[in-house]
Structures are given as C-alpha cells and as structure tokens.
Design a protein around this nucleic acid. Sequence first.
DNA 1: CAGAGCGGCTCTACGCTGTAGGTCTATGTC
DNA 2: GACATAGACCTACAGCGTAGAGCCGCTCTG
Lengths: 234, 234
Amino acid sequence: MSVPPDSSVPGKAGARVPLTRERVLAAALQLVDDEGLDALTRRRLGQELGRDAMALYRHAPDRAALLDGIVELVLDELDIPDGGQDWQTQLSRTAHDFRRIGLAHPHVVSLIVTRPLSTPLGLRPLGTLRPLERLLRVLTDAGFPPPLALRVYRLYIGFLYGHMLTELQEMVADPEETSDLLRLGLHRLPPREFPLLRGLASDLAAYDGEAELDQGLAVLFTGLRTELAVALEV
Amino acid sequence: MSVPPDSSVPGKAGARVPLTRERVLAAALQLVDDEGLDALTRRRLGQELGRDAMALYRHAPDRAALLDGIVELVLDELDIPDGGQDWQTQLSRTAHDFRRIGLAHPHVVSLIVTRPLSTPLGLRPLGTLRPLERLLRVLTDAGFPPPLALRVYRLYIGFLYGHMLTELQEMVADPEETSDLLRLGLHRLPPREFPLLRGLASDLAAYDGEAELDQGLAVLFTGLRTELAVALEV
DNA sequence: CAGAGCGGCTCTACGCTGTAGGTCTATGTC
DNA sequence: GACATAGACCTACAGCGTAGAGCCGCTCTG
C-alpha cells in the first residue's frame, strides 16, 4: 500500500524520481480503491507518495482535476472492440467489461456517473470521451446514421450506469444474522406498509449481477430492434 | 432566501418557534437547490435558519443523515398511482414525474443515485423505500409474480437513473459562442480522433430530454413485453 | 568552470469544514 | 415555588483545500 519515502534520500547522493501525473493518479486510484473516496486527501496522498501535500499541485491543479483524472484512468481500462460488425455482441462485450471495471473500482463508479454533471462535455478529459467516440463508431459501422447512433449510445450508457448503481447498492445491514430478512435489515420495515419488499428478502439476497445485466441487455436489444424497425420503415 | 433571525428575540418576550426535522430538511433542500451541494454546511444552514450550527445536531445527527433526509424529502414528492392496472402507463407516468423532480432539484439527483451505495437497503429512510414498495405493488397488481416484479423494477429504475444522469450532464462550455461546436467546446477535440463526436455537435445541442425519455420507455416496454412473453411461455 | 535560471518540492498560514463536550436558559411538571 | 429537562449556544480541535513564498539541486549558457 504505502510507498517507501524514496529510493534516494534528498540530502544524500541522488536525484529522486520526480512525480508524474500518471504516478499521482495511480496512487490516488489505489487509495480510493483501498479506503474509499473520503481517504483521498492531499495530505494523505502526499504521504502515500512520500512527498509534501503541496507537491501534488504541480500535477493536479485542484481536487476536481484529481477526481477527473481518476475517472480517466479507470475508463482507460475499458476496451472497446472496433473491427467487427455485430453491434449487439460488441455492446454486450463492452457492457460486461464495464461491469468488471465497476466491480474492480466500486468507489469510482459514483465518480464516473457524477463528474459529468459538473464538467461540460467538451472540457472533459479526453480519456473519458474516447469510449463515447469508440461506441459511436461501433454503431455507425453497423449502419446507424450518427444521430441515431447517439441516441442509442445514450440509452445504452444510461442503462449501464443504472445497472452498476443498482448492483453496487449496499444490501447487507448485519452480516452476523443468518435469515435473509434480518441480514438485510428488512425486519425494521413496518409489515403493513412494506409487505412486498419484506417478502422479497430471499430474492434480494440472491441478486446475481451478471445474469441481471444479461437480461437487461436482452430487453434493451430486442426493444431497440423492434422500435428501430418501426421507426426506420416509416 | 434567508430567514430573519427569529420572530422573537430570545432575551425578550417570546418563545421562538422550535426547529423541527422537517424545517431543517426543507431549509437544507432549499439551500442545495439554490447553491449546490457544496453550500450545504452546518454553519451555513444554521445561519439560514437563524440558529447556531450546533442546534442542527438535534435534528440530524451527522452530515449523512442530512443528505439522506434531503433525498427522502425529494422522493416524497414523487407520486405513484396505485389503483389502475395498466403497468406501462403507470410506469411511464411515474417516470415523467421523476424527471420533473430531477429537473426541479438537479443537485439532489446525484444524491439520489449515490446515497444507496453507502446505506444498506434496510437502513435507508423509509421515505426512500416507499417508491420501491409502491412500484412493486403496481407491477404485482398487473400480474407479475413478485420476484419478476423486482427484476422489472430494477431494470426500470436503473434506466430512469441513467436517463436523468444523461439529461443533467453539463454540455455548454461557453454560452457566449454561437456555433454549436464552439458552444459545446468540441473544437478542443482532435479532429482525427473524434470525428463522430465533433460531427454531432448540433444533435448534442438539440437534446430533448422528454422525447428521449419517451423513446427510452418505448424501447424498454417493447423489450420487456417480448422478452417476458418468451420467458413466460417456456 | 562559474553563474544564472528554473523546475520540483517544501513550509507556513488562512479560512473553512464536521463535530465533541460543556453550559446556559426558557419551559413544563410536580 | 422548586426542579427537571429539552433545546440552543459557545468554545475548541483536528483536518481539509489551497495561496504564496522560499529552498534546493539540476541543467543550460558563457
């Protein structure tokens, strides 16, 4: 987790490795993955890198830049096929890859979905726009006119965000308990007002994210196929 | 915006109106709506209510409780029909109502989608679980067995969250400019790498949230109808 | 080889945050 | 009238982001 102060002591022999934006962001991501967003403070990050907190300002001018950088770093892990022609399997593959990334960096998901609310499209880090362009390419290559590709992209990515937000919801209230109702804390709910929710305890406990994603994609794709057929034949 | 210190000076005659959780949360929501989430600090909120910052602790034990309370307050505005039997129009109506609320309280949307990542289902404020129960009821009333209703609910609500996150994205980078490309800041993108995105400037600028929501719902519903028909006939 | 320039870093300091703990006071109850 | 108590206030503390100035050692120039 922590990094030794440096390979070379400043007073002594050597040039110590200078920080880079990449190293800073990588350490920031590591920190967020390990301890959550609240742990990401300048002092803490500086300590992790063996530098003074202020040293970071050279590589990330403010906290927002740090957050945007983390998002960029994570989205860079996403790999989007670009050759093939079957848009559905390509979108499906990408969706599963996005899910993999979301599960690997759960605390970053809230940043991914939330940062764009503060940063205008055109000013976002290029790394966060690259998946958008690549997916537009996938769709246009498959024959969608660009404006339609954009609408499909929006629907798809919104669905994906929604899925990850659902999958990452906290469910277990008390890991000690054995019955689903108690584990999920659903016994707190007044039975008269929440009969259905309470009755679904075991279904909630048995949530299967991958299956649910596939079902969702199936719904999305058949919906798109028939809706688009209608729209295009008019 | 601000509230006069109080109707009665403490030293003088009268009992001043005591704070209530409702008054505190209402003021908090007001503040967030007017100035964004960052403006929501205890001292600021206390000032707004004409009380000391510490007085708020009696009604919201910590900042998380304040945020959860705001979410609860906003979700309480959501009204979900409960009599009728056509689940699609009911979900559609609710979706539009949710959109209305999201547009009315844009800064709260990030809380709505994000808070559940920190609070286990069973421990959430009842007000945030009520829409869930009501929608489950809509679906079961329409004939869905509860476990399936849950899956449909998840898909639906995920889609809804995704839509709002998309609609609330910041787009305009420079309101002064007249051409769409410049207004959105897309001229910053290297043309070789982002030809499609740059080409979609006018489509991006012409975004119509309500239409897009309806199209999305149409896709979702037809997808659901045919997928469910398949699944149920097996 | 001397000296200048400068990039990378550190130090100090400021105003702000959430919140713990103690205290004051006006009110309701016997 | 005496007392208990709920509600609000005051003080204080550690930790936050970040502005501004200064230090140190490399590299480039003559």
